[in-house]
Amino acid sequence: MELFGAIITLIGSLFLLLGALGIFRMPDVYNRMQAGTKATTLGTIFFLFGISIGHLECGCFGKIVVLILFVMFTNPVSSNALARAAHFTGIKLTDRTKKDDLEKDNIKNKGEEK
């Protein structure tokens, strides 16, 4: 059981490493957020779960469950707030971007106000 937990922890840490690599390699802030949010969320879930099932004897599984739920709910919210703020302050998307509906709608709304 302890070995099983250790392997799950290792997988989780690999996902955390992938999240950090994604932050490092992606070309603009939105793509960085994509890698940063998803990979770190699943990585944290695996890491904490692996550690807790490797040490079942201490009886603190409940706290780990609360921590996992907390990370799972707040991580997307914070990255959503950051993405919204980044778009609001006018940070450019990368050159490889296909389309930007939000920018188009913002320009349309300004035209209607005038």
């Binding site: 992938l18 990979a39 971007t97």
Partner: peptide, 17 residues
């Protein structure tokens, strides 16, 4: 996401819909 991050050419095609 893992495949996209690891592959050297970064196969992304982003946009806001």
């Amino acid at each position: 996401v893992a495949f996209r991050v690891i592959s050297p050419k970064l196969p992304i095609n982003p946009g806001i819909v």
